[in-house]
């Protein structure tokens, strides 16, 4: 088991197999999203209160979920890199940041557009859910700026991993903000205490989109990490051999 894990985490091996794993995630991911988007827009019944505006949920919830998921992957990978000095873990953390930032932006933007007609406001500065999600975006920016600021990769890895771990507190705040404080944002739907508070016809396309977005994210993360590994290993022998090999492929 450990041997297999170490082999998987070895840069040349990871570089070779990442595209295969990436494709394996991408295809079902796209299929799920295709079903989720179509069913969410046209098959799911409209909501008894929000009418068709509720359909924004099909892109808002997956991106909001990924904004936190990506952060946790970044922080945990950073932590693994700090503790076990695993090179691949730092490459994963560095690659998760820009993806996470994009999904955080998407969650904020779609939430804002949804809030205008339903709640009557684009944005509320005093709202805990909205503010903590915005802070999440700042943490991603801070993380990437910190990395960009430190030339020494090993030092950048350590400093940014510490920052990422500190920011986990904020992710917890994002998650519980709707319970701890009074927010315009409603509470948990899918993870509600008595089971999902949603019609099955609405729920299945949503679950499909959540899984689909996650698979797509996984596919992007694998390929981003692969490029990061290539860059970090640019002076090593295996990269030189690969590039000079007659059948060298990108």
């Amino acid at each position: 088991m450990w041997k297999w894990f170490h082999q998987l985490a070895s840069p040349p091996h990871f570089y070779r197999i990442a595209p295969i794993f990436s494709a394996v995630l991408l295809l079902p991911g796209l299929a799920l999203i295709a079903y989720g988007v179509y069913a969410g827009l046209f098959l799911a019944p409209m909501d008894y209160q929000q009418g068709d505006a509720f359909r924004i949920i099909y892109v808002h919830v997956p991106s909001a979920y990924l904004s936190m998921m990506a952060y946790m992957i970044m922080a945990v990978a950073g932590g693994i890199g700090l503790i076990w000095r695993m090179k691949l873990a730092h490459a994963v953390a560095a690659s998760a940041a820009p993806l996470g930032a994009w999904f955080t932006f998407l969650a904020l933007a779609t939430g804002s557009i949804w809030g205008r007609p339903m709640w009557g406001t684009w944005w509320e500065w005093a709202d805990p859910r909205m503010m903590s999600e915005l802070i999440l975006l700042f943490f991603y920016f801070g993380y990437m700026a910190l990395r960009a600021a430190i030339d020494d990769t090993a030092k950048a890895d350590k400093a940014s991993a510490v920052l990422a771990l500190v920011g986990v507190v904020n992710v917890i705040i994002v998650h519980y903000s709707v319970e701890w404080w009074s927010s315009l944002h409603q509470g948990q739907t899918i993870m509600a205490k008595d089971g999902p508070a949603m019609d099955p016809g609405m729920l299945y396309p949503l679950l499909a989109n959540i899984f689909g977005f996650t698979l797509l994210f996984g596919s992007l993360l694998l390929r981003r990490t692969r490029t990061e590994v290539l860059f970090r290993e640019r002076r090593t022998r295996w990269v030189k051999e690969m590039i000079l090999a007659p059948e060298g492929q990108s």
Partner: peptide, 18 residues
């Protein structure tokens, strides 16, 4: 000077709600 509406975490079809 500003009115905002809240909604709960339940989503259902109009017929079901009825």
């Amino acid at each position: 000077d500003k009115i905002m509406a809240k909604h709960d975490e339940e989503y259902m079809a109009p017929e079901v709600a009825e």
